[in-house]
Amino acid sequence: MAASLTLPGGQGLRDNAEVAVPGAAIGLLAGLFAMAVGMMAGLAPAVTVTIAAGLGVPLALFGAGYCVLLARGVFGIGAVAPLALYWFVGFPLSRLIDSYAVAAVLGSDTVLDEPLLSFLALQAMLSFGFTIGFLWLHERIAPRWLLRVRDHNAVAADLVERYMEHAAHLNQRRGARGPRRKPSKNNS
């Protein structure tokens, strides 16, 4: 008799891992994008692959963590401020790991060209842009993924229910304000 792995709160590890797929995919996609930019800049293949892994893997782990926290109700659907705080920590750490990985591949004793606090401050500022991009992609990918897996995944089914409630709330708010666009005068 095999015991299934569960997280606190009785949720299955497999269900949470499946819910985490969209966030992990976005993190890996960001790493691949960084690799493509490195290739266009003419960096050595070993460096570009290191950039993809050194940045993509930590971003994927943080992205997966966001999805699990979203499923657990720590984050609200579409909430920017809490996610910005999450990436305020996660993005600079991911960039620092990336910098260490690239320095190791290059055989360099110097990881950063600037002081650590300056590096982290700049990455923290850049994290807000990453937050917006991550949230935009997540809100387009995750609902479709969750709809695919909800029949066999209770965590996904609960999250789909929250997305449906959120959508109903947004539609109700829009209805109270009237139409979003004014009719064009050219439509006569």
Rank of each mutant, 00 (worst) to 15 (best):
P92L: 02
L135H: 04
A104V: 06
C67M: 07
L126W: 09
V47S: 02
R14K: 04
D109Y: 01
G175F: 09
M40I: 02
D113T: 15
L55N: 12
A3P: 15
K185G: 09
G12N: 06
L7D: 12
A34T: 07
V37C: 02
D98Q: 11
R95W: 02
L112Q: 10
M164H: 07
A167N: 13
F130Q: 01
L7R: 10
L126P: 00
A124Y: 01
A24N: 03
M35W: 15
G23T: 03
Y100C: 07
A157V: 04
L13A: 06
M1H: 08
W145V: 04
D109N: 11
L116F: 15
L13Y: 09
H138D: 12
V102W: 06
A168G: 04
V68M: 03
M1C: 04
G76L: 13
W145R: 05
L28N: 06
V49P: 10
G12Q: 06
A41M: 11
Q123W: 06
A64L: 05
G10Q: 02
G54N: 06
A104T: 05
V74E: 10
A3V: 14
P45D: 08
G10K: 07
N187V: 15
E139W: 10
A84H: 02
A34L: 04
F130H: 12
D109W: 08
R173T: 11
R144A: 12
A2V: 04
W87M: 05
K185Y: 14
L83C: 05
L83G: 03
G31T: 07
A53T: 11
I51V: 15
H166N: 07
L32G: 15
S188T: 10
T6V: 03
R162Y: 05
I97D: 07
W136K: 10
R14L: 03
E165K: 12
S4G: 07
V19K: 00
A81S: 14
A52G: 15
R150F: 10
E165T: 12
K182M: 15
A71F: 00
N186A: 14
G78Y: 11
R95N: 08
S108D: 09
L96S: 12
V19N: 02
R181C: 08
G23W: 00
G42D: 08
V105Q: 03
F62M: 04
M1W: 03
Q172G: 08
W145N: 01
G54R: 00
L93Y: 10
K182Q: 11
F128Q: 00
G73P: 05
A53R: 11
A60I: 00
G27I: 05
E18N: 01
T50R: 02
F88C: 07
N171W: 11
Q11E: 11
V57R: 01
F128E: 00
A60R: 01
G12D: 09
